[in-house]
C-alpha cells in the first residue's frame, strides 16, 4: 500500500493507540508520531518525511502552543509540491460545532474522525482516500 501516516497529538496514549490501530490495518505502513504540532510541521516543511507516498496526517485539534487550527494555517502556506503529498484528517474528541465547521472549512482538511480511533474508521478513511 502506497501510504504513510503522520500522527500529531499531544497525548502520548492517543499517539500509541493511533500507531497501533494503523499497524493493525497493515503492519507495513510507515507511521511518524509527533506530540508537538510544531515539530510535525517542521518535519513536513523540511521534507524529512520519506517521499513517494501519499501521507495522511491524523491531526488533533486542542494542543498547547500550536493547536490544530494553527497547524493547518501554517501547513497551507507551504509550497504546493509539498502540500499535495498530504491529506489531513482531523482526529479529535471535540463535539464543538463551531470548531468542527471552522476546521472543515479548510480545503486541505478532507475528513474528521471522532476519538477514540477504531480500526473500522481508519479502514474506511483509507478506502475513501486511496
Amino acid at each position: 500500500m502506497d501510504l504513510a501516516f503522520i500522527v500529531i497529538d499531544e497525548s502520548e496514549l492517543d499517539c500509541f493507540i493511533a500507531r497501533k490501530v494503523i499497524q493493525q490495518v497493515d503492519e507495513n505502513l510507515i507511521v511518524y508520531v509527533f506530540q508537538s504540532a510544531q515539530h510535525g510541521l517542521d518535519s513536513i516543511r523540511e521534507n524529512r518525511i520519506s517521499g513517494g507516498f501519499t501521507t495522511i496526517i491524523l491531526l488533533d485539534l486542542q494542543m498547547p502552543v500550536m493547536d490544530g487550527f494553527q497547524f493547518v494555517e501554517e501547513f497551507e502556506k507551504l509550497p504546493a509540491e509539498i502540500r499535495n503529498k498530504y491529506k489531513i484528517c482531523v482526529l479529535s474528541c471535540t463535539r464543538n460545532a463551531s470548531d468542527i465547521s471552522r476546521i472543515m472549512a479548510h480545503k486541505t482538511v478532507v475528513s474528521l474522525i471522532e476519538k477514540p480511533l477504531y480500526k473500522a474508521d481508519l479502514q474506511a478513511l483509507i478506502t475513501r482516500l486511496a
Binding site: 497525548s11 496514549l13 492517543d14 500509541f16 493507540i17 497501533k20 490501530v21 493493525q24 486542542q62 474528541c93 471535540t94 463535539r95 464543538n96 476519538k115 477514540p116 480511533l117 477504531y118
Partner: peptide
C-alpha cells in the same frame, strides 16, 4: 464547557481506545 470536551473527554476516549486495542494485544 469547552475544556470539558478536551480535558475530561480526551483522557476518557483515550482509555476507551486503549481498552478496545487491548483485545488484540
Amino acid at each position: 464547557a469547552y475544556s470539558v470536551s478536551h480535558d475530561i473527554r480526551g483522557p476518557i476516549s483515550g482509555i476507551l481506545g486503549a481498552i478496545n486495542l487491548a483485545r488484540e494485544i
